[in-house]
């Protein structure tokens, strides 16, 4: 893989803005959560933002992403509306899924954010279907399919790898390997840790990024997008990353005993939000931070003031017209 050119200052600002927005938006979600205004199980990406941001920074608008129930970062990084997301968590009519899906089913068709699923692994073949359509229609678009390490244990994952490779589909599989499926570590679930080798046996180029570095993730994505647009088929990227908070809910869970807090330390030290923030001059950073806070405050206000769905909405969208 050729090293791509270093990011421009404009790139840096954009990347930082995206990282910061996701981090702060989720922190605000966690802050609001105990008020019970959000009656939706939230799976926060805090600590994992760089994967979504690094990948999405290299995608065009016409390209798509598919995420998981831990999908706030994917949704926001690809351009999903923050207002729509917060309102969705509040169960409001203005939510991105009209209050019908909640935090686990974010979608933004305009930004090509496919809907996320609460059933692990289910969106992998669906993303592949999107890639098939892109290929058949010759749109030149590609899709990044985000999945957790746990999702790689489902048969649908391997079935998809095989088919995507066989048909040279423009799909980038992005495994966010945070080492756990709920509270169970990889060592109790995987016979070997050689995920990339497993995938490579399908003749799919694989990359492993071990430090969550947003620029490395971005570089690999740039290479993958280029290859996919040339019709060379799927690419696989495994990103080691760490979930800072509990599996579901606003708090942390180091007290329940399945993992030690010292695991978190190195990840906090290389926190990508901070790292990229420090690459900006103080003034620029402050300006971005301010704009991010404003956007979040407006989104919360929007959600608070939005109406709940009308009772008749219960029976709307059961069938398409």
């Amino acid at each position: 893989m050729e090293p791509s050119s270093s990011p421009s200052s404009k790139d840096l600002q954009r990347i930082y803005r995206s990282l910061r927005l996701i981090r702060r938006a989720e922190e605000e979600v966690a802050r609001i959560y105990p008020s019970d205004k959000i009656k939706s199980p939230v799976h926060l990406s805090i600590g994992q933002e760089s994967v979504a941001v690094g990948v999405c920074d290299m995608l065009d608008k016409k390209d798509a992403v598919s995420g998981t129930y831990r999908g706030h970062a994917t949704y926001l990084a690809k351009g999903g509306s923050l207002k729509g997301m917060i309102a969705e968590m509040y169960g409001k009519d203005t939510g991105c899924a009209r209050g019908k899906g909640g935090s686990m089913h974010l979608i933004e068709a305009n930004a090509n954010v496919l809907g996320s699923s609460a059933v692990v692994g289910t969106t992998i073949p669906i993303a592949m279907g999107w890639a098939l359509a892109a290929k058949k229609r010759k749109t030149g678009a590609v899709i990044a399919a985000f999945l957790g390490d746990g999702a790689t244990e489902e048969g649908a994952f391997y079935e998809s790898l095989n088919f995507a490779s066989l048909h040279k589909l423009p799909i980038l599989f992005v495994c966010e390997n945070n080492g756990y499926a709920i509270h169970t570590p990889l060592s109790k679930r995987w016979a070997t840790q050689h995920l990339c080798q497993r995938v490579a046996s399908y003749d799919i180029p694989t990359f492993r990024i071990e430090d969550g570095d947003v620029f490395s993730i971005r570089n690999v994505t740039a290479w993958a997008v280029d290859a996919m647009r040339k019709g060379e088929g799927p690419v696989f990227m495994e990103c080691l990353i760490y979930r800072w908070r509990e599996h579901v809910g606003p708090g942390d869970d180091y007290h329940i005993g399945y993992r030690q807090k010292n695991e978190l330390q190195p990840w906090m030290e290389t926190d990508q939000v901070e790292k990229v923030g420090k690459m900006l001059d103080a003034e620029t950073r402050k300006k971005i931070d301010k704009a991010v806070e404003k956007e979040i405050a407006e989104a919360i206000d929007f959600a608070e003031k939005s109406p709940v769905p009308k009772p008749r909405a219960l029976m709307e969208y059961v069938y398409a017209d």
Partner: peptide, 16 residues
């Protein structure tokens, strides 16, 4: 259940 998918908005869920 109402003949639809279970919604998450609490007011709709109550009707479900």
């Amino acid at each position: 259940f109402a003949p639809t998918t279970c919604p998450t908005a609490p007011n709709l869920e109550a009707l479900f």
